[in-house]
Amino acid sequence: MASQGTKRSYEQMETDGERQNATEIRASVGKMIDGIGRFYIQMCTELKLSDYEGRLIQNSLTIERMVLSAFDERRNKYLEEHPSAGKDPKKTGGPIYKRVDRKWMRELVLYDKEEIRRIWRQANNGDDATAGLTHMMIWHSNLNDTTYQRTRALVRTGMDPRMCSLMQGSTLPRRSGAAGAAVKGVGTMVMELIRMIKRGINDRNFWRGENGRKTRSAYERMCNILKGKFQTAAQRAMMDQVRESRNPGNAEIEDLIFLARSALILRGSVAHKSCLPACVYGPAVASGYDFEKEGYSLVGIDPFKLLQNSQVYSLIRPNENPAHKSQLVWMACNSAAFEDLRVLSFIRGTKVSPRGKLSTRGVQIASNENMDAMESSTLELRSRYWAIRTRSGGNTNQQRASAGQISVQPAFSVQRNLPFDKPTIMAAFTGNTEGRTSDMRAEIIRMMEGAKPEEMSFQGRGVFELSDERAANPIVPSFDMSNEGSYFFGDNAEEYDN
Rank of each mutant, 00 (worst) to 15 (best):
322 P>V: 10
370 N>D: 11
339 E>K: 14
213 R>L: 06
306 L>V: 06
274 S>E: 02
243 R>A: 08
416 R>L: 04
173 P>V: 08
449 E>V: 05
263 A>G: 12
271 A>P: 08
239 M>R: 00
275 C>K: 05
321 N>H: 13
376 S>F: 09
463 V>R: 06
268 G>P: 13
105 M>A: 06
441 R>Y: 04
249 G>D: 10
272 H>P: 03
181 A>C: 10
218 A>I: 08
243 R>P: 02
119 I>H: 08
368 N>H: 10
62 T>S: 15
418 L>D: 00
276 L>M: 15
481 M>K: 12
131 A>M: 12
263 A>Y: 01
12 Q>I: 08
288 G>L: 06
126 G>F: 03
371 M>C: 13
475 I>H: 02
477 P>A: 09
298 L>P: 05
436 R>M: 03
365 I>W: 13
127 D>E: 11
28 S>I: 01
246 R>S: 10
388 I>T: 09
267 R>P: 02
261 R>A: 05
358 L>A: 05
32 M>Q: 01
447 M>S: 13
403 A>R: 12
380 E>M: 08
44 C>T: 10
97 Y>C: 12
137 M>E: 08
104 W>T: 09
237 A>V: 01
374 M>G: 07
222 M>I: 10
72 D>R: 14
428 A>N: 11
159 M>E: 02
409 Q>R: 00
288 G>M: 11
224 N>I: 08
64 E>C: 10
298 L>Y: 01
176 S>D: 02
122 Q>P: 09
136 M>Y: 06
112 D>T: 04
444 I>F: 11
423 P>W: 01
209 G>S: 10
222 M>N: 15
96 I>D: 09
141 S>G: 12
421 D>E: 02
184 K>F: 07
182 A>G: 12
240 D>G: 12
266 L>C: 09
394 G>P: 03
431 G>A: 11
487 Y>R: 07
409 Q>M: 07
66 M>V: 09
24 E>S: 06
152 R>E: 09
403 A>P: 06
161 P>L: 04
498 N>K: 15
25 I>V: 15
387 A>C: 08
391 R>G: 09
158 G>R: 01
185 G>F: 04
491 D>I: 02
217 S>E: 00
428 A>I: 11
14 E>G: 02
330 W>Q: 02
14 E>Q: 10
35 G>H: 12
360 T>F: 12
448 M>S: 06
84 S>G: 13
269 S>A: 14
166 L>A: 07
67 V>F: 09
140 H>A: 08
226 L>Q: 12
